[in-house]
Lab assay of single mutants.
Amino acid sequence: DIIVVALYDYEAIHHEDLSFQKGDQMVVLEESGEWWKARSLATRKEGYIPSNYVARVDS
């Protein structure tokens, strides 16, 4: 799995977006363009995230 960590807070604009806080970790489910589908490890919610707001966690 690709794990990313939030670099900034993000408040969902559309209902399919995923809100998150700086430091939150998410599993990337699908990478396509600038918006990635991800699942929050904390809340288990899924939605689209702006890929420029996150960084990959080296395992």
Rank of each mutant, 00 (worst) to 15 (best):
V27H: 07
E34T: 14
K22S: 07
Y8N: 06
M26H: 01
V57A: 08
G47V: 02
V4L: 05
Q21R: 15
Y8S: 07
G33V: 04
K37V: 09
W35H: 07
K22E: 07
S32L: 13
E30W: 11
K22H: 05
I2S: 09
S59F: 12
E30C: 15
L29K: 05
S19A: 09
S51P: 11
D9M: 04
A42E: 12
D9Y: 04
P50E: 03
S19C: 06
S32Q: 12
Y10K: 03
E31M: 15
V57T: 09
V28H: 00
K22A: 11
L29G: 02
I49E: 01
S32M: 13
V28N: 01
W35V: 07
H14F: 08
Y10C: 05
D24L: 02
M26L: 13
D58V: 12
N52P: 04
A12H: 02
D24H: 06
E30G: 08
L7V: 06
L18C: 02
S32N: 13
R44Q: 15
V27P: 00
D1H: 14
V28D: 00
D17N: 10
D17E: 15
I3A: 04
A6W: 01
E34R: 13
D9G: 06
W35K: 12
A38V: 14
E16I: 08
I49Y: 01
K45Q: 13
V5Y: 10
V4G: 01
D58K: 11
H15Q: 14
W35D: 03
A12F: 02
D58E: 12
S59A: 13
L29Q: 05
G23S: 03
G47K: 00
E46L: 07
Q25P: 05
A55C: 12
V57E: 07
Q25I: 15
N52F: 10
L29M: 08
A55S: 11
S51M: 10
V54E: 01
E34F: 15
A42R: 15
I13M: 12
S40G: 05
Y53Q: 07
K37A: 05
L41V: 11
M26F: 15
A6V: 01
L29D: 03
L29T: 07
Y53P: 02
R39S: 05
E31T: 14
D24S: 04
Y10G: 01
A6Y: 01
L41R: 05
M26G: 00
S19Q: 06
S40A: 09
A55E: 13
S40V: 08
S19P: 06
A12W: 02
